[in-house]
Design a protein around this nucleic acid. Structure first.
Lengths: 167, 167
DNA sequence: ACAAACTTTCAATAATTATTGAAAGTTTAA
DNA sequence: TTAAACTTTCAATAATTATTGAAAGTTTGT
């Protein structure tokens, strides 16, 4: 497999995986492109490479910046803006996990908390709803905590000891 | 909040979370409904409760069975089929993690392996592609392994000791 | 202050994905 | 073997989501 083919394969695969971490295809592809680029890219570069429109590129770059995984790079003497992505996979994972938790998991945990806290009126169905949503709440909270802690700090130490523990 | 409201809130919230674990809304809502039901439900029950068509119900139930989290229940004397979902959250998480890994993560890991194994032609861009996809491959593999191991066996012991470790 | 170089916005449109419903298929009981 | 009771399939349609492109907005150099 040659460079060009490998590059395209990477961008398209990683892009289609976008759904796994909750972002759309264009967003994921732009990030992929930046991730393997040896230098910052301009909007023009990205449009041409991925064959997407200016508007699309602009909107998705903004979203990537909101996620905190792409930053503007000012290149002296250049009028246009250039972009880079976080190149360290650990940092990348940290950002993604954090955003995912904030945007999706935390709100769901909040609802589970509310629902599992309704008054027990003695009815069998109410009891079941409370019991099951409580169990889900505890699971979601544990998973969220684990994910964040693992990914957040001392990641090398903890990952290594963890892997030893469970492998 | 009364039972009915809490129930609807749970189903709609958990349903919208479907995207997080890679299933569609109807599928997630059917699973939610079964999850808090005190007895197996028929297709008729599900259609009426969620206001979705017979075809939709049938297709999504099948998918849920493919995922291994919903099973047919035969009720003596009844002609129609009844359905239940796995009620234990740990088991549920295990199934979901396993399927998610098999369907989405493993194939991506395979591509990352391929792409990161292309011949180094000495070009700077090729070197970067190899380096970055290798890093991603290792991260993805570690994450996948961890997720599966954690969720798979001795989960109670490991989760508890893990939480102590990182909390 | 002007205009060139660039970016953003957003209504229109395209592409994708989910849902319906009715016909075809299957199972069961008599 | 028939027909009632039920489930599945799938082409048509609806709903949702992504993308375009051109007009409006912004910044910078002269």
């Amino acid at each position: 497999m040659e460079y060009q083919e490998a590059k395209e394969k990477f961008i398209s695969t990683w892009g289609s995986l976008g759904s796994l971490w909750g972002i759309n295809k264009a967003m994921a592809q732009i990030q992929s492109l930046l991730f393997i680029s040896t230098s910052p890219l301009s909007m023009e570069d990205i449009m041409k490479e991925l064959k997407i429109s200016r508007g699309n590129t602009s909107m998705n770059l903004r979203q990537l910046m909101d996620w905190g995984i792409v930053t503007k790079e000012l290149i002296p003497g250049e009028r246009k803006e250039f972009f880079t992505t976080e190149k360290d996979v650990q940092e990348l994972a940290r950002h993604i996990a954090k955003e995912r938790s904030r945007r999706e998991i935390k709100p769901v945990i909040k609802v589970l908390k509310e629902v599992s806290s309704i008054k027990d009126d003695g009815n069998e169905k109410t009891k079941e709803l409370i019991k099951q949503t409580k169990a889900l709440h505890d699971l979601a909270e544990t998973a969220d905590t684990m994910m964040n802690k693992i990914v957040n700090q001392e990641q090398n130490w903890i990952t290594k000891s963890l892997l030893k523990l469970i492998k």
